[in-house]
């Protein structure tokens, strides 16, 4: 669906080197701090910026050959860009209808009304949540094969976020070949939605793991100095000095559960893992 290999983009104070893949039928998450390189990756994948190196293949085509016709198969949400604020929802429907042959106007309008979005109010007068909903509904209304969603839930409250994630789940259920690439800095969104997750930090992918594995096999071990000295460190990915001793990230929770029953072992969450991957040191 989407294959990015050693995508390079150099800015003055930031350099991106990203390799990742979104497989058919999968929801793949990209998680990282603000400024880690998520949006740069998305923009390069959409041909909005020119890469300085590497390759991007999207729906089987090189990004340089990916034309307007091919874009009909994409649904896109960008965190900081959308329809002109001077348009209304009633204005956008006929525009989308002309741009996409597969635009499902009835579905679009139904979702708009379900979400409580007004037809004739200018988009610039919408709240953050309303704008976010409009963007996602726009992206899922033309039978896209791949959704590229950059921070679709940013600025939303818990309930609105849940509603959006439900829309994305429904989108995936309709066709098993569809895929989603989604970025977020709210890990909870990704834990419940994604099949696999990439973590990006300072322009580099620091971890790629299936979400199930991440939640079942990753853990943070907490221990004092003495326990740390005695610890078998072959499955430790990152280590961090703490006031009480050490925190260690492992991807073999079971091994430590069985062999070190006295250690405090905290089940891995995406938040725990990303914090340790970024702030901890490799051994």
């Amino acid at each position: 669906m989407l294959k990015i290999e050693h995508l390079r983009k150099d800015y003055k104070s930031f350099s991106l080197d990203c390799t990742m893949e979104v497989k058919p039928g999968c929801v793949t998450g990209l998680i990282g701090q603000n400024g880690a390189g998520k949006s740069t990756t998305f923009k390069a994948a959409l041909g909005l910026i020119r890469p300085d190196g590497g390759s991007i293949r999207i729906l089987g085509k090189d990004i340089r050959d990916f034309d307007a016709q091919d874009r009909k198969k994409l649904g896109v949400v960008l965190s900081d860009s959308g329809f002109s604020g001077y348009l209304t929802v009633a204005d956008t429907a006929p525009v989308l209808n002309s741009l996409y042959e597969d635009f499902d106007k009835a579905f679009f309008l139904e979702q708009i009304h379900k979400a409580g979005l007004p037809d004739n109010k200018k988009i610039k007068e919408f709240s953050t949540g309303m704008k976010a909903k409009l963007k996602v509904i726009t992206a899922i209304s033309h039978n896209a094969r791949l959704l590229i969603l950059d921070e679709p839930t940013s600025g939303l409250d818990v309930v609105a976020r849940d509603e959006l994630l439900d829309l994305l789940r429904e989108f995936m259920e309709k066709d098993e070949d569809r895929s989603i690439l989604i970025s977020s800095h709210i890990s909870g969104d990704l834990e419940t939605l994604c099949d696999d997750v990439y973590m990006i930090h300072e322009g580099k992918i620091v971890l790629h793991e299936d979400t199930d594995v991440l939640l079942s096999d990753y853990a943070v071990l907490k221990m004092d100095e003495r326990q740390y000295e005695a610890l078998d460190k072959q499955y430790i990915l990152r280590c961090k000095k703490e006031s009480f001793g050490y925190s260690c990230l492992t991807n073999q929770k079971q091994y430590y559960l069985e062999n070190y029953p006295k250690l405090a072992i905290i089940k891995g969450t995406i938040d725990e893992v990303i914090t340790m991957m970024i702030r901890g040191a490799a051994l």
């Binding site: 909005l48 034309d67 307007a68 016709q69 874009r71 009909k72 896109v76 860009s81 329809f83 741009l99």
Partner: peptide, 21 residues
């Protein structure tokens, strides 16, 4: 200018629209 408002170009160009178009 309306297209440009609030950084609208990236979204506009991710629609099935080429730059030439």
């Amino acid at each position: 200018s309306y297209d440009e408002f609030d950084n609208g170009y990236p979204f506009l160009l991710s629609l099935p629209v080429s730059r030439k178009g």
